[in-house]
């Protein structure tokens, strides 16, 4: 497995946000999901840059919706996880689990 296949922390958060949001994942909801769950200020530009990268890697697909049926209605770009994205996420979680197997992580960390 090459180094490029590992997911960065922010990439993981974005993918997990897509997982949570199901078919309502677009710029606003992804950004708000990450910000409200992690408490971290997230720039919309960072979200889009990350989604573009993930799309290039094949972890994410996007589709543009029909414009809203009102004057000046906008269309939205929805994102969803692909099979490969799901695999990558699983791999990342597996790795963490394997590293923590057999260790009472919380207790050990608190003891430091």
């Amino acid at each position: 497995m090459s180094k490029g296949d590992y997911l960065g922390e922010f990439e993981q958060m974005v993918l997990l946000a897509l997982l949570r949001l199901k078919d309502n994942a677009y710029g606003v909801t992804v950004r708000r999901e990450i910000q409200s769950r992690t408490g971290r200020q997230v720039a919309i530009g960072a979200v889009y840059a990350c989604l573009e990268r993930l799309e290039r890697k094949g972890h994410v697909t996007s589709s543009v919706s029909e414009p809203e049926p009102v004057p000046g209605g906008r269309s939205k770009k929805y994102f969803s996880l692909t099979r490969s994205g799901a695999e990558a996420l699983k791999r990342a979680r597996d790795m963490v689990r394997r590293m923590t197997d057999g260790v009472a992580v919380d207790a050990e960390l608190d003891a430091i």
Partner: peptide, 20 residues
């Protein structure tokens, strides 16, 4: 400054959140 491919989505997304 926004890249052309996402420009409209970025502008609309920020406007939406602004109104929220």
């Amino acid at each position: 400054t926004a890249p052309e491919r996402d420009r409209q989505f970025l502008i609309h997304d920020l406007a939406e959140e602004f109104h929220i």
